[in-house]
């Protein structure tokens, strides 16, 4: 009815104001900008994490150091083969490098945070345990005892029993 009335009268319906649209969009934008963390290291091994249900969240992401274990990405397979390898930071590494890696991670943390350091093991699900055990033994030698096996959240089974 308003349309007819406005046609009869001289007044026009004011257009929907979009002046606040930028504000809304900026608000969403800031949210995404703050929540974004850019990937800092390049992956040189492919990791498909296994699934688990009894998972806990890593509460301090900044206190975690990551050890990736998996077969090299296709670009490096000609050079390194397809056998599982360890990636620390950006490059292929060996068991012996873990000691320095852990020491460097410890060094970059404040004194108070050091006992809370967690080593997140991102291991491909098809990797054999031998290499993982070697890494774990090396971590024990370095006294980096707090570890986390990174896993994906398992989708709940549809069929109950």
């Amino acid at each position: 009815m308003a349309i007819f009335r406005s046609k009869n009268s001289k007044k026009k319906v004011p257009a929907l104001s979009t002046a606040s649209l930028p504000d809304v969009v900026f608000m969403i934008l800031f949210f995404f900008m703050i929540s974004t963390s850019f990937r800092t290291s390049e992956r040189v091994v492919t990791v498909k994490l296994p699934e688990a249900t009894e998972i806990a969240k890593l509460d301090r992401k900044d206190l975690a150091s990551y050890i990736n274990i998996g077969p090299p990405v296709p670009a490096y397979q000609a050079q390194y083969g397809t056998d599982a390898r360890i990636q620390l930071n950006d490059s292929f590494s060996t068991i012996e490098d873990i000691r320095d890696f852990i020491a460097a991670s410890r060094e970059s943390m404040s004194e108070a945070d050091r006992p809370l350091m967690t080593v997140a093991l991102k291991v491909d699900e098809d990797v054999r345990m031998g290499i993982v055990t070697d890494v774990k033994q090396e971590l024990r030698r370095c006294s980096a005892l707090k570890i986390m096996y990174s896993t994906r959240r398992k989708a709940e089974e549809k069929t109950g029993f």
Binding site: E54, A56, K57, A120, L139, R140, L145, S150
Partner: peptide
């Protein structure tokens, strides 16, 4: 980051 948190026994 999610996963199973464990503590290794000291050497």
């Amino acid at each position: 980051e999610t996963g199973i948190q464990r503590r290794l026994p000291p050497m």
